[in-house]
């Protein structure tokens, strides 16, 4: 009996999730806890940039009328890792995910030649040379006014 209840709940969750995906307003995810928007479109799966270009890419990004994005910090990117799953290890509300490493804005402490990355195949964290190409998912601070409204 318990098994069927779980199965029912699970299928309900999947249904809600796919509904959410369709409803998703043009590739931007609202993250109230961190006070930021997340980019979630095909580019956040297919992009491949070195660290300098990743910063430039985010700054030039315009999405849903929102301009001047930035790279997430290590802590911000870590907060969307889902360690209860792998391939990909990301919270299920994201739709466009590359099974590889993503850039963060956080410099590596031991040398400025490296910055922190998180690999969304498993959630492994690593310091990569800035000249390496990785996927980019930009964020944007929610303006103070709309944070207030959403509460």
């Amino acid at each position: 009996m318990k098994k069927y209840t779980i199965f029912f709940l699970l299928s309900l969750l999947i249904a809600i999730n796919s509904f959410g995906n369709n409803k998703k307003s043009g590739s931007v995810i609202l993250d109230k806890r961190n006070g930021i928007y997340w980019q979630d479109n095909l580019s956040s799966q297919k992009s491949s940039e070195d660290w300098d270009d990743a910063i430039l890419y985010c700054d030039q990004l315009s999405l849903n009328g929102i301009k001047h994005w930035r790279l997430p910090t290590f802590e911000e990117l870590f907060s969307i890792v889902d360690y209860t799953r792998v391939h990909p290890a990301i919270h299920p509300f994201f739709s466009f995910v590359d099974e590889g490493s993503y850039w963060t804005s956080t410099d590596f402490a031991a040398t400025e030649a490296r910055a922190w990355t998180i690999d969304f195949r498993t959630g492994e964290t690593y310091y990569s040379y800035k000249t390496t190409n990785h996927t980019v998912r930009c964020v944007k601070n929610i303006p103070a006014k709309s944070t207030k409204e959403s509460k």
């Binding site: 590596f108 492994e124 964290t125």
Partner: peptide, 10 residues
């Protein structure tokens, strides 16, 4: 987790 730099791996 390695406390040298803070990297995590399984």
């Amino acid at each position: 987790i390695s406390m040298s730099y803070g990297e995590a791996e399984p």
